[in-house]
Design a protein around this nucleic acid. Structure first.
Lengths: 361, 361
DNA sequence: GACAGGTTAGGACACGTGTCCGCTATTGTC
DNA sequence: GACAATAGCGGACACGTGTCCTAACCTGTC
């Protein structure tokens, strides 16, 4: 025969009413204890606390919310959990908001799913919505308009140029000004672009920064840079993409002496491509990355890159959110620009002057 | 004088009652449309749908839940968002559950916060709770008991040995059997351990696997392995930790010819440490990592490692969760073991036989 | 033992929603 | 134009909670 069910004689406790019956008090009394109202005997308070420990009873968060007793919550849309900088921002932002008693709802959104995610956040009556990463601009603008229409503050992190959007983003233009000046200062005058092509605003900003720095040296984008992005697909990972681009660049008549990559992975891939063809970095050519991820310090040569200043970015984001939550919307969108930090390492060095580039045998 | 407020004449719509007034229908009629009940004229349905597009109205998710119309939700406790394998599992699990109409609540838990996070999940009446990463075993066991007491299924991913817990974890023992046999097959007989010390079950499992493989070759852990973990703190990052350990190993009388690291970062750090001292990897010594992260392919030499088979792990996790959610608890905990995959790359090669190790000048 | 003051009981309402039900208004058919 | 079928209306209740209110209870004091 089956063994007797132990400790399961009582019915499950699903409400304060059930719980009050268990304690032997009125539901309203229990509720007053839970909400710390005055005029209660210590003995009663203790009795309720003890029963809570025994049963592990928790009030229904949904009913609580319905009564307006909600703690604020933040909806976070993140483009992907596979890009380390985005995850870092997400993690730090969640931590910063949590200490301010704001919980975070995290959703990874694919391009088609944005609308339903925002609807879900609206349905959950979040206090604000944050977008981390890069999204379809028109779509994003629509979602932001929808949020504003409902009086819900928003914040776009990383993506600039969305009309009417509160934005916190790295000054990518300035980042490229500094990077280009750094390379110019090392004597480089011809630049290979790795993954730096296309229409996204973030790339246009960076090219514009390059153009500005080049102009200061009497050079132009057209005359001094070369892009071979069209020769290879980016499928198969950024590492492979960078490696393939490097090979193609070595087949060009005048091989550039400095290479500027969209991100660190592509830069590392390119370095591998060059090394496999018998070239040395930085002796034969310089290569720079972007984002200053951990891998920059792990590869040989260590990689010159641009630090996104993630901590400062998220701090600014948290400040804006706190200021907006619970306050009337203002007419002009808040836009904060984060200053980048150039981190020079081994992969960029003085340009070759006369020695001809050794090509692979 | 202030400009007239545009488009804000109507009061905000906060409930189906407000919304029904806006549409010009009865609240119950609107509700029937929203829930797809029969007996409605197409014209009415269209009118409601159009009004929803105009206003962006969404029903209050909390009131919905209160009525029992909830979609299931999963509470995910993750140790940290800064360890790539954990984030990968999190991302894939969320995706797998989402297609099954289960939403995910993600919380990063610090050691002291575990209890309050679980209480919060209980309060939100989640359908199940998943733990990803490594936690305090006693604490975790207590939380699992609390969940079981409330009839809520749980699943522990990665951490083995928690009594009574449903578990999905890599067979770390077998992983080390294979890694050790691989190195033995290359002629190595003395091993340096990098970060592989301490009491956690995951480390003990791995050492036990090493011991088994060594025994097959007539060797023992005591006679053939060396650990210098006690000489350096792990603060300052795993890369630095590995580098420092490498330096210390080079000062030892009989330097091991093969090094086995706790993870890929430590292995890469150690390779740097060896290279900086003038040693070559793998010619002078072999180094292996663990986790098969992206960096394994980015460093030179590329790093031999163990793949965690994350996709298979998460698939097993999702299967268990789906089976448990909404079903009566079973007596015996479900335990699934995932088979690791050894990935050999350039960093491990045949052991030196006679050539003396070149020490740094 | 009576009385005042402090505590608790329990009824009521509200929050926003789904659903049931009886009733009315509209529509369609011959 | 009469009738039946159909569609929408609006009241009611429930979900679990906080809060207010009044009545009843307990406790301590003289």
């Amino acid at each position: 025969m089956p063994p007797p069910t132990p400790h399961r004689t009582a019915k499950p406790i699903r409400s304060t009413a059930d719980f009050a019956r268990y304690v032997g008090l009125a539901r309203t009394t229990v509720s007053r204890v839970l909400n710390g109202q005055p005029g209660l005997k210590q003995k009663t308070i203790d009795k309720v606390r003890r029963a809570m420990d025994e049963t592990g009873f928790t009030v229904n968060a949904y009913a609580l919310h319905l009564k307006g007793k909600r703690a604020g919550s933040l909806g976070i849309c993140v483009e992907s959990l596979f890009t380390p900088p985005a995850v870092a921002k997400l993690a730090i932002l969640q931590r910063k908001m949590r200490v301010r008693d704001v919980s975070s709802l995290i959703e990874v959104v694919d391009p088609e799913g944005m609308k339903s995610v925002i609807r879900s956040f609206l349905s959950l009556r979040v206090s604000a919505v944050v977008f981390i990463g890069h999204f379809n601009e028109a779509d994003l603008a629509l979602r932001i308009e929808e949020l504003s229409h409902h009086g819900i503050p928003h914040l776009v992190v990383d993506q600039v140029g969305v009309p009417g959007a509160n934005t916190v983003a790295l000054d990518r233009r300035k980042a490229m000004v500094e990077m280009t000046r750094h390379l110019l200062g090392l004597g480089h005058v011809s630049f290979g672009l790795l993954g730096l092509s296309g229409t996204p605003r973030s790339i246009q900003d960076r090219l514009s920064g390059m153009a500005e720095a080049l102009a200061g040296a009497g050079l132009t984008l057209e005359g001094s840079t070369l892009s071979l992005d069209h020769l290879h697909p980016r499928t198969g990972g950024d590492l492979e993409f960078g490696r393939a681009l490097a090979r193609s660049f070595l087949a060009v008549k005048r091989v550039p002496t400095a290479f500027v990559a969209l991100n660190d992975e592509i830069a590392v891939g390119a370095i591998h491509g060059f090394q496999e063809a018998g070239c040395r970095v930085p002796e034969d050519m310089s290569v720079s990355g972007f984002n200053n991820q951990d891998i920059c310090k792990m590869v040989k040569p260590t990689l010159t890159s641009v630090d996104q200043q993630i901590e400062a970015t998220v701090e600014a984001a948290a400040e804006i959110l706190i200021a907006k939550i619970g306050h009337a919307p203002v007419r002009h969108p808040a836009v904060r620009t984060i200053q980048p930090l150039l981190v020079t390492r081994e992969s960029t060095a003085r340009a070759r002057t006369s020695v001809a580039l050794r090509l692979r045998g």
